[in-house]
Design a protein around this nucleic acid. Structure first.
Ligand SMILES: NC(=O)c1ccc[n+]([C@@H]2O[C@H](COP(=O)([O-])OP(=O)(O)OC[C@H]3O[C@@H](n4cnc5c(N)ncnc54)[C@H](O)[C@@H]3O)[C@@H](O)[C@H]2O)c1
Ligand SMILES: NC(=O)c1ccc[n+]([C@@H]2O[C@H](COP(=O)([O-])OP(=O)(O)OC[C@H]3O[C@@H](n4cnc5c(N)ncnc54)[C@H](O)[C@@H]3O)[C@@H](O)[C@H]2O)c1
Lengths: 231, 231
DNA sequence: CAGAAATCGTTTATTGATTCACAATAGCGG
DNA sequence: CCGCTATTGTGAATCAATAAACGATTTCTG
């Protein structure tokens, strides 16, 4: 059915979804491409193209049905049955993530957490226990866990990543400030807060703005997407 | 002197620096482009190009002086004197960030934190106090704070962003799951953990890998950069 | 000292994503 | 029922980022 989406496309779909959910809760049934483009920071054409890739069709003067879009995005992004993740490193950051994400989604469940520190073992948040690292391979294998979240200190990150990959995960969300060496088939998403911080500091100091999602506002406001036929 | 760097370039420079610091601490004096490219996930040519933009020169066969590179990166990324940031929303995530980042850099100081909840007011971490929101405009203005970190719940994020922009910050690091509306001249870096999570889940489910920094390993290993002259 | 090997600097191509442009289409008002 | 307008769908053009290519340069080795 739908072909493989690119990283950028997946990012936008995630944003569209959150926006659509809010619109739906506000009572809207349909939406136009120029409504979606502003908060995501792209042009209406980009939105239409993304929706096309989803396999959805709109109606020229009537827009897209929000229900259809949500269903199509869910089919693309969410696991058909259910998908499990584990988190390793129940420190400041790990605990914040667990608190925030546990039980938030039906289709992606944070199944367990791990830490070397025995004082962290036991129940952490509802539906998620913390174990010693020795339990990791068994639990990941038994529950067919596909996603690993790494929130251990830098020095331990590579070891943990290797354990997770060996145990069979195929996706890693890495918060440690280094690039992990992983097998070819494992997808790694690095959330590098140090880099993000340095980026903001740099651009905050430089008044000349990069294309910073700002141009889209203008585009949508004046709806430049339509051909302004010359002559 | 050095021209404005692109977002991607700044990201790579941040990574180069951390790598170079480790190499230096291990006693190295010089480095080759193919050593830097692997952990950053690019080709040697890209590394050379970045270094060129820094205004540094290497010596064929002898590599680049690590000291020079670090100095050039610091000149590009770090504020000449000192730069201040504030954080708004001392919850799980905010506290994790404060603990991690406070006092970590000479050139970028987390000067203060803010929260609506009075129980959070007072000293949080060494060198960083927490105040009520009413103090925000005054402190940001008086200390010429340039960077604001937003870790409040989604519903409060836009209000906080507006306050910060009005008070004069020119860069925002936003952890709330929405796109902020800000004046033209303010740079916003969104750290969208929900999207990151959904991305990993998606690609973990899809064995066909995207260009995921993996090809660079091969390139560097076999040093394909050199012309393999045909005939 | 000469020739080989490695590495840099830079120009040129490639790639992939985004935007533009506009024909096709459907609602809407008279 | 008929133009009129707003909006979609999509091929072509543009753009930015990356990789390839290769001559120039320097060290190293015999
Ligand atoms: N907290 C932040 O705001 C922040 C910002 C940027 C980067 N990071 C990175 O995120 C990671 C975690 O940061 P943090 O602030 O939560 O650190 P933290 O010290 O609060 O927590 C680390 C946790 O990992 C556990 N741990 C240590 N070694 C382990 C191992 N081998 N296996 C399993 N668990 C182990 C520790 O017991 C601790 O509970 C670090 O790599 C840090 O560089 C954090
Ligand atoms: N914690 C995570 O792992 C995580 C993950 C994804 C996204 N986020 C986002 O990060 C933000 C913070 O998450 P959190 O887990 O730290 O939440 P939290 O509830 O633990 O902390 C929020 C803090 O903000 C304060 N606050 C509320 N309204 C405020 C206002 N108007 N002005 C100043 N302070 C205010 C609260 O008192 C609280 O201390 C949220 O937007 C959340 O969606 C967090």
């Amino acid at each position: 059915m739908t072909a493989m989406a690119s990283e950028k496309t997946v990012e936008r779909l995630s944003l569209y979804r959150r926006l659509l959910l809010r619109l739906r809760d506000d009572g809207a049934d349909v939406v136009f491409s120029h409504q979606l483009c502003v908060p995501v920071g792209v042009t209406p054409a980009q939105v239409r193209r993304d929706i096309m890739q989803l396999g959805c069709s709109g109606v020229p003067h009537a827009g897209y049905k929000i229900k259809d879009l949500l269903a199509a995005i869910a089919e693309m992004l969410d696991a058909p049955q259910s998908q499990r993740a584990v988190l390793v490193g129940v420190g400041h950051l790990g605990l914040a993530l667990l608190t925030h994400f546990s039980g938030r989604w039906r289709w992606l469940h944070v199944h367990a957490a791990f830490d070397v520190n025995p004082s962290k073992h036991g129940a952490i948040v509802r539906g998620c226990n913390c174990y010693g690292l020795d339990q990791l391979p068994r639990i990941v294998r038994e529950w067919r866990v596909e996603v690993g979240v790494i929130t251990v200190p830098m020095d331990a990150a590579q070891t943990v990543a290797t354990m997770l990959c060996d145990a069979g995960v195929t996706g890693l969300l890495n918060f440690a400030p280094l690039r992990l060496q992983t097998p070819e088939h494992v997808y790694v998403e690095n959330v590098d807060l140090t880099t993000s911080f340095e980026k903001v500091a740099y651009f905050a100091r430089h008044p000349a703005r990069l294309a910073n999602n700002k141009n889209a506002e203008r585009d949508a406001a004046s709806e430049k997407d339509r051909a302004d036929v010359p002559g």
